[in-house]
Structure formats: C-alpha cells, structure tokens
Design a protein around this nucleic acid. Structure first.
Lengths: 212, 212
DNA sequence: AAAGATTTGTGCAATTATTCACAAAATAGC
DNA sequence: GCTATTTTGTGAATAATTGCACAAATCTTT
C-alpha cells in the first residue's frame, strides 16, 4: 500500500541501504529485527528507519519489531528488485569484463543477457555463461529483439554517446553510464552515471581536512 | 580563505561535480564562465553554484563571471585534488585490474603505487607501469615503507576484513571498499564504500514507478 | 562620465529532511 | 486480567538545504 505523496529520493537510497545488512542478519539466523538494531547496522537514526518504511506501509509490529523475511520481501517489492531486469552491456574491456563477471548483479536480479563491443578482437568471445560478445552494429536489433531494459555503457568515452544513442533508438528504458562522459539523452530515458573518482575526491577532501 | 562554519557534505559533493564539466569547458576553449552556464552544465540551480563556492571564498567577478582556469585551481585546492595521493590496492582480479588500468584515477592525481593479492597466480604480475603485484603478507610492511595514504579493497568479500585490518594496522588514512562487505574500522580511519548495485536499485525503482 | 546591462555574493523566506517524543499496540510476567 | 515493558508509527519541533530576489560590483556603450 503506497501512499501517493511524494517519496524523497534520500528515502529510496536509504531503503536500498537497509536491504544489505538485513540480508546478512537473516543469513546469520535473525528472524525479527527492531528499528534500533537495523539503524545501528546502517549507521542511521532509528526514527529515520521507521519513517522511511512508513512511506510504504506498516511492516512492523509494535512491541515486537519487524519480521526480517517479510521486511526483505517488502523492500524488494518497493525497489522493484523482486524481479529480474534484463541488461545489455556495451564495452567489454576491463570495466565491462569486471561487471559481467561480478556475481552481485545476478544475486540482485540484474542479469546481463547481451554484450556488445566495437573491437573485432572481443567479438565472439564468451564472457560469461550464455553471454557472447556481439558487434555493436547489431546493438539496436538485439536490444529490441531481446527486449533489454537497462543498457550499461562501459565503452571508451569517445564511443559512449554513439553507443548510448543506439540504446535510446532501440527504446531502452534506462542507461547506466560508467564512461565518465556526460551523455545527452531523450526526455523519456533515465541515465545514471557512475564515477569512482567522486568517492576518492570525497575521501581526499575529508583526509585533507583531518590531517591539515 | 575558508570560513570556519560547517560546510555541508552535499556542497562538497556538488563542488566535485562542478569540476568535470568545467575541465571540459576549458578544453573547448572557454575562459570565463557564469554561474548560470555552469549550473546548466551540471543540472543544478545557479544560486546553488554561487552559494556552494561562496563557502570557500569569492572566486568570481560581478558582472563578469568566473575565470575558468582559476576556478578549476581553486576547486582542486578545496577538494585537495591539487596533489598526488598514494594508493595501494588489494585484490587484482577483474575489478582490481579494471581499477589500476583506469586512466581517470591518475588524471585526477590518484596514483596506484602498490598492489597486493592473496592468489599466488597473480603475485609477480606487472599490472601497470611500475606496478608489480606483491603478496598480501607484505601489505603492512610495504604500506608503511611507501607511506600509502588510501587503501583500495577489491578482494573477495571473505578476504575484505582481513585485508582492511592490515591496512589499518599499517596506519593507512582511508579505505575505499569495493568488496560489498561492511567493514569494521577504527575510529581514526575513513572508509568509503562503493557498490554498483545501488545505482541499479535506484534505476529499477524509478523505472518501475514510470512503467507501472 | 553617466546610463544601461551583467552577474556575483548573500540575507532571508520557503521548502525539505531529520529527530524527538509520545500515544497506541503488542507481549510478558505475575 | 492487570501492570510493566517493549517497540512501532507518526505529529510536532528542530535543523538543514534550497532558491529567490536584490544590492553591490564590474563592464559596455554612447
């Protein structure tokens, strides 16, 4: 039961954050968890946990806490990670390879079902179970045929826009961009950029403040 | 001239964001930029740009704008990315390899000067210019000898805590954790976690909201 | 040199987010 | 079944962030 008021972005981010310690907690045999405990695991305020969850419904029991398994399933429903998403990746050099081979994606329901590259040397390579690299020339066709939902850009910066445009033309829903280039995009499509150096910039700032 | 009031975290994040379009702008021959233009490039509000920068000083000229080169240098000074940071990485499988070979780090002053792995198969490998993989058993010693500042964890989840602890013991200043494990850490040390699946969770949530 | 046009820096109001604090609901002990 | 204890859900208070709006500073034109 989702209330139809605007849900803050920060709430979504935190709900995704709750997921991971919760899974651990369950794996270690926990069945019930309080907002206090969950908050502690996530380094946030307990009232925040309760308020965040209350945007989506009443999942807890007063005087008791939250059933872990139930809460997990509710959170996955909220984030729409209770289903499989079909990903296509372009660029199978170091980053691309690392991504398709990373188990976490599949564990969370993000499945690479198609891979593309410009470099003839990479084409035809089997990069993961049932995943053979196709030439980028077939990107649009395959994206439509396989109804890919999310396109992952792991190409060089100079190829990034070209590749993204092909995904857009094929009607992809969203793009996850690892290429450290700003992408022009159509209104209808979501783009999320990932840049590791931001994390380092943030660390460097804090370090400098501390050691100064 | 840094005012000694508390600077919001979001401001630091945005200042890092400004850096990248600014560098592009300069590369394309721009010499002066207005807060309006910079804001447009970064998808933020112009007043926000001005206010963010004003935390650190007065870098602009009224009626004119900001000298791009000067602003870049000021921002780098703010973020402490006007210097080189010495990084050590542990774990040279797919992610680790992708990281050490990624040019962006060096461009921003983040230099991998030591690499470590548990796997004997990886030890002795030259993974980048002047970067040969050492056994993790030498991590503490080398971290101290080379006065590494930031440790990057790209090991398997099960080795992550062990590795991090060695960095901590060696007196590392900060750790960047790619291992999708929560790390216990001493008070004195900063830890920043990087988890790609968060970006996907966020995309999935937004997609689901849209296509529902 | 004066008027008009720009664009910064910032006080302040509006909005948004966080946290407190407590009633309501559930359980446990007696 | 009553009392004490726990813990949720949430209204209200507090805190933080954003963005407007305008004076101050600079440049441009005549």
């Amino acid at each position: 039961m989702i209330k139809d008021i605007k849900i803050p972005d920060v709430t979504i981010e935190r709900v995704a954050l709750y997921l991971r310690p919760l899974e651990n907690f369950e794996k270690n045999g926990g069945h019930v968890i309080s907002s206090d405990k969950l908050a502690e695991l996530c380094n946030v305020n307990p009232a925040q946990v309760r308020k965040d969850l209350s945007f989506f419904g009443e999942f807890g029991v007063r005087g008791v806490g939250y059933q872990v398994t139930e809460l997990l399933s509710e959170i996955k429903k909220i984030l729409a990670s209770d289903r499989e998403w079909r990903l296509g990746i372009a660029g199978l050099d170091d980053i691309g390879m690392a991504l398709v081979q990373h188990k976490n994606f599949l564990n969370r329901g993000y499945k690479f079902v198609a891979a593309f590259d410009f470099n003839p040397r990479n084409i035809g390579k089997r990069v993961a179970m049932d995943l053979v690299v196709q030439p980028v020339s077939r990107l649009k066709e395959i994206t439509m045929d396989m109804s890919l939902e999310i396109g992952v850009i792991a190409t060089t910066p100079s190829e990034a826009q070209k590749t993204a445009d092909m995904f857009f033309e094929a009607g992809i829903l969203a793009v996850l961009n690892f290429s450290s280039t700003h992408l022009r995009k159509p209104e209808c499509c979501l783009v999320q950029n990932v840049d590791f150096t931001f994390s380092l910039d943030h660390l460097a700032y804090q370090l400098n403040k501390k050691i100064r």
